[in-house]
Write a protein that binds this DNA or RNA. Structure first.
Lengths: 336, 336
DNA sequence: TGGGCCTGGTTATACGAATCAGTTATTCGT
DNA sequence: ACGAATAACTGATTCGTATAACCAGGCCCA
């Protein structure tokens, strides 16, 4: 800046004022031009560190993930956060620790050294987790998970509404025997498993339909369990006309079972998934109707909260999972 | 730091020296203890901005992607870069622009304001791309792509060696009629398509086998093309005994065709893929033998080069794609 | 007895930007 | 014609850290 000042024949203060005073500047056009020319010619760029040091406000937000980076949706969740941050001219300092607590503490420490405006603490899947103590020294938000101690505000997908929406979609199509293949037991207390299940039962109850135990299965969320449970369901007597698979991989297994049994989707059985896994759902044949985890939106919202100050009020914001309509759901066959 | 000094009854300089002098410090144990106690008690953390300002060396590396974040491997490529950066105590300032050139320029500008030690410019798929001018003002490396102007050093997967390895794997198993379904035409000049094809022809030539035009197909890298080309190949006369699919999605289509034709993989036909897409390859039945794009390694290497100064020598470092052995390849059936 | 040399500190300064409080000229109102 | 207001700009200071240069005792040795 001193160089620019010298080149323009003015003082450093003048350069600073010309560059920053929005418009109510009190300098002659002549001087302003000389300054701007010098800036361009010297390729001057302001030093963000000096600015931060002087003003005490940082242009950086920290993004700390346990192992998000390895998940295929990692990019999306970061993208949303980044987008929102950039709208306020902030950048994201990212770090994922792979669950290593020592690394977590160290990198968080490093972030705090940069006086970040806040920290997004992201979980790789929806669960209740313990957050580092140091997070309380700065506005922080838990993303795609919930603070077990109910202190930091959290942003997570609305699993229950998602399960409800999925089930409703099937019920609205006219199905009555609707099965569900869950991704975990209810005892796991996994929010995704419990919430999606609750949504299912709620929709069934609302439609005046019983939740039949033989139509509710618990797998581990992989395609093999989807396959075996679907085989079992469809070869039993009085099989369901539709299956709500609590994730897309399970639905994929259901597709394989349907192929094996020479059943057509959706004519013989409707399938609905969950996750909208982009490398899978659109590529199945027929395209899988499913619910999308709103990663970009969640990322945005988390940063939003930080920019608003993010008091540790323990609130949990549940974000809606939109229904992605493809071709795996139709009305049930007429019973002759 | 002044607060710490006051609390410990020493000067600010003493605090700084106690905290930084590795071990050859010349302070009494008594003083050192008082300083450390004060540091702990006040929860003092050094201000990275002040440090950077004073020393002129930044602890941040920029990671600029065109649209990497949306790709499923985004996390991996960032993870590798991050890991390597952290080994030197550096953090990553990430930004992905979605290909928006104005946004790219603006965010790069912002990164440069932070006096980043270097910038990794990542492409979402392997191609030759135009890099922003401003990158030349700081050590920069092109990742998962190549600088079209051959200026910045680039780190990219060794497509040709990958194609060679895949084909060799099939030849070594005893196959002679080996087909290839590519992901693009050669005119596209897509390094992945051209390189993998060259690897294929090289391996065939080396084995003294002809490259039969009827066994080489060009699709668009999706499962539908994999399906139709495999149907066509396997129903023609004198079908191949093995197919090299230039990506996993194509291989998936090949699997579907095999199912349709009641052919068993690998007994009736061996399949090898490329990409090792983690949401697909391990979950196919049988598990797909394929080549892995070394994203973590590439990310590491890119940062490595930056830490070494990364002169704009135009070099391209090709990283080996490891063979991931699963169960889709075996020896050909004996011809009766 | 005084110079040299450790030991254990302190003082002062620079890094780059922002801003408050001046300081000149010039113009204006009466 | 004289004080006040205004336009246009500058000086000095601040943020937090690192470090070169300096300083005060105490000890040793000739």
């Amino acid at each position: 800046m001193h160089d620019v000042a010298a080149a323009a024949g003015v003082s450093q203060a003048t350069v600073s004022l010309v560059l920053n005073s929005a418009s109510g500047s009190r300098f002659s056009d002549e001087t302003r031009k000389r300054v701007m020319d010098a800036v361009r010619q010297l390729g001057y760029r302001t030093n963000a560190h000096a600015k931060t040091l002087r003003d005490g406000i940082s242009g950086i937000i920290g993004f700390l993930g346990d192992a998000v980076a390895t998940a295929p949706f990692a990019g999306k969740i970061i993208e949303g956060a980044q987008e929102r941050a950039w709208e306020d001219g902030l950048l994201l300092l990212t770090m994922n620790t792979g669950g290593d607590k020592a690394l977590e503490a160290a990198s968080l420490d490093s972030m705090l050294s940069y006086k970040v405006a806040g920290v997004v603490y992201a979980g790789m899947y929806h669960r209740r987790l313990d957050v580092p103590e140091a997070l309380s020294t700065v506005p922080s938000v838990v993303l795609n998970s919930q603070d077990r101690k109910l202190r930091l505000p959290s942003v997570a997908p609305d699993e229950e509404l998602g399960g409800y929406t999925a089930t409703r979609r099937l019920l609205d199509a006219g199905h009555e025997r609707v099965a569900m293949i869950n991704i975990e037991t209810l005892e796991s207390e996994l929010p995704a498993a419990v919430g999606r299940y609750n949504g299912y039962t709620k929709a069934m109850a609302e439609a005046g339909l019983p939740v039949r135990p033989e139509l509710v299965r618990f797998g581990s969320g992989n395609e093999l369990d989807g396959f075996t449970h679907t085989m079992d369901l469809m070869t039993g007597n009085n099989p369901p006309t539709a299956i709500f698979c609590a994730n897309d991989r399970t639905a994929w297994g259901a597709y394989q079972a349907a192929t094996e049994l020479h059943l057509s989707i959706p004519r013989d059985v409707s399938i609905i998934g969950f996750d909208n896994q982009e490398t899978l759902a659109p590529h199945l044949r027929p395209g899988l109707t499913t619910l999308e985890l709103p990663f970009v939106e969640m990322g945005r919202r988390a940063v939003d909260l930080i920019l608003q100050g993010a008091e540790p009020d323990g609130r949990v914001e549940f974000m809606t999972c939109p229904l992605i309509e493809r071709n795996s759901v139709t009305h049930p066959k007429e019973k002759p």
